[in-house]
Write a protein that binds this DNA or RNA. Structure first.
Lengths: 226, 226, 226, 226
DNA sequence: AATGAATGAGTATTCATTCAT
DNA sequence: CATGAATGAATACTCATTCAT
């Protein structure tokens, strides 16, 4: 009696595909217009120009419908990152970081309103939690980038952890900018800050002990005072 | 005809105060156990050991009840940060950063499960959006810290923007750690990474132009290659 | 954000029409059995043999459902009056009056119990107030009748005012008879009194001054003493 | 287990009486301001400046409270009519009618807003039905007036029935004027129409048979053509 | 007597989901 | 395959009434 959350059928006919597309497009629109609470199946179906019955023909429940929408967006995001890295992989670490930053910002620039809703209102529960989690995949890509430039970091640096940190911060900054400070996106300032943050982070030596800072901890102070 | 979201009455009798406390405690528990959607007023009232009627005697609607819970938590967070900075204000920039990091992590360590729910499931809509927004206040505090050490940064650095970046990243990293990688918290590794991130960011010179990186951009490379 | 009170959708399938009919019939019955306060949507739906959901598929709220019932009755009443007058328009004033009286009584004879509830318990508020107000329309019809026989009245008589008086009194008398003295209806006595009241009223000269009746105000006394 | 609807105690102390008065005054105000549905016991108590508990000290339930209000108003109305007739009893029939008309209008002029609510919104159910029925008493008074001038009517005229008709029409016209056409009250026009209606009615001979009107029914036509 | 906190049955309304046509 | 009518469990919220203080 577990709830199905995967699409019900792989539409093979053109008409079916059109319906599926219309539905996804419709959820997006309805989500933007009415918010998560206001996104009823009836409204989505109506907006898609099909009947509720048809909606359920392709998606077993509301969750799966929204999941599909998210999946598509998340997917395009992951793809963008990967492509960016693929293109820049051979290049320098800096090129790679820039590529990631730009890919992230670009993807979010497409449908900021939708992203806002997705981030702010859609509950990260059940299937949705999984689907919304592009982080792991993106983090993996970043980790790969870092490992490709292993010689640039001291051996104490854990690439997986650094990748997690980078992914998390980039995502958070992108969302905040998209949602609250779009002008920082347009002007390119956010991009600069992100770049500065990442290069600073990666060049900064791993902290040995944060808890008991020795008064004259030479290295740390120096690093910070530069 | 706007919806009231502020508590309904200031309880004057001791009995009332107990009811209010029980309610807040109950929402927290129910939220953790049943998630946002499952947090019905009936359940909360039952858990609090009072009647639904009593719930509505003090909170005009479900939203205001949850908002009250959030407010309390958010409040304690902001307070913690401010106290941390107050204590460290006279000290070095580094002390200040450490204090902020630790205050953030400490606050979230108290009720990570609740925080998870709050962050992942509670829709940032209406009143909730406001109440959940501690960022602005915290960012202000951070900005103050940065300005107090203005001589440490090149003039191009905008303290307000830097504060926004710091606040955003710290919050995101804290949440991620709390939610997905508690062991990073326990081991203190996350704390180190955060510190490294911030010091690196602040010591890294503001990027002049990200878009057209000149092949042999001496300074940047150097900074990054450290 | 005003409350909708008009029916939600025009049923297109035969099944729908049946549901709508069943609902209207059900409200009437429930109203009679349980009174206005006892007429819950659940009860109505149950009596109609449909689910609450179906009720709300056709009526956006309880008010609109009851309004629909009233509208139907009121409509049939207005129609009856108009038909009565249409048929009697060419005839004498007396024929017209008789027709109106009878139409009113006849309509109310159909469902006196329902009328009782409607008159006594349904609050004349919002939409209901409008819908219940057949008076204006009926008064207009009466006015038309009076004007058609203008030569029968002294010029001081204001047909609009007279129509209002006639409409009001007929309605009140009908209701009272229906509710408290059904035997007066059955015996035809009420009909006679109404006729007598109207003809007396219309033949009586408009009073010139009620406030300071001169002791031997010839005309008035005479008129009254007849 | 029948519901009590009579006041709970006869207050003997001055303070009690003040509370009772305040409560009655408060229901009236609340009724006017918020309508019947909006007249909650809490609101009434608050407006009266006492606690809900106190309200229930004097009235066993909401119904009895409103009933008390109605009773007071109705009582003053009946009293007014009776006094009017007592004073005019010895005088002519016309004087009596005028006195009744005026008494009715005067009473309603005092608190038209409250009357509107009472008539339109308060459900005539249970105790309320009784209390609202001043008609019987007033009709009795009118009947007495008519009998006192028995010689003025043909023996076929049933004084009880005529009284019922008069009472009903006067009440209805008064309410309508109060509610919808206050200007007719102010100008005195309604008073004239009422007088005209009553004298016309009483002077018009009882109709013998309404159903088969003889084409040349001399008397009736004459009466009407006046 | 007075207070006002507490009660909880009761109600309107929504919306994901099903299924006969 | 599509439709949209029908379902009914679930939920927020109200308010008359009680009763401990």
């Amino acid at each position: 009696m577990t709830i199905e959350t995967t699409p019900r059928k792989q539409p093979r006919q053109a008409r079916s595909q059109a319906t599926v597309d219309a539905l996804i497009e419709a959820v997006a629109q309805v989500l933007i217009e009415h918010g998560y609470e206001g996104a009823t199946t009836a409204r989505v179906a109506e907006r898609a120009g099909v009947s509720v019955g048809s909606l359920y023909q392709y998606y077993p429940n509301k969750e799966s419908l929204i999941a599909a929408l998210i999946e598509r967006h998340a997917g395009s995001f992951v793809t963008a990152i990967d492509e960016a890295l693929a293109g820049a992989a051979t290049a320098s670490l800096e090129e790679g970081l820039r590529a990631i930053i730009r890919a992230g910002l670009d993807t979010h620039r497409i449908a900021p309103a939708l992203h806002k809703i997705l981030v702010e209102q859609v509950p990260r529960v059940g299937r949705m939690a999984e689907v919304m989690d592009t982080s792991r995949s993106v983090a993996k890509s970043i980790e790969r980038l870092l490992r490709a430039h292993r010689e640039r970091f001291p051996p104490e640096r854990d690439p997986a952890l650094a990748a997690l940190v980078i992914e998390t911060t980039l995502e958070a900054l992108t969302h905040r900018a998209v949602i609250e400070r779009p002008e920082l996106l347009a002007s390119g300032r956010m991009e600069k800050e992100m770049y500065s943050l990442l290069t600073g982070y990666l060049s900064s030596p791993p902290v040995l002990d944060v808890r008991s800072p020795r008064p004259r901890a030479g290295r740390k102070k120096k690093a910070a005072s530069r």
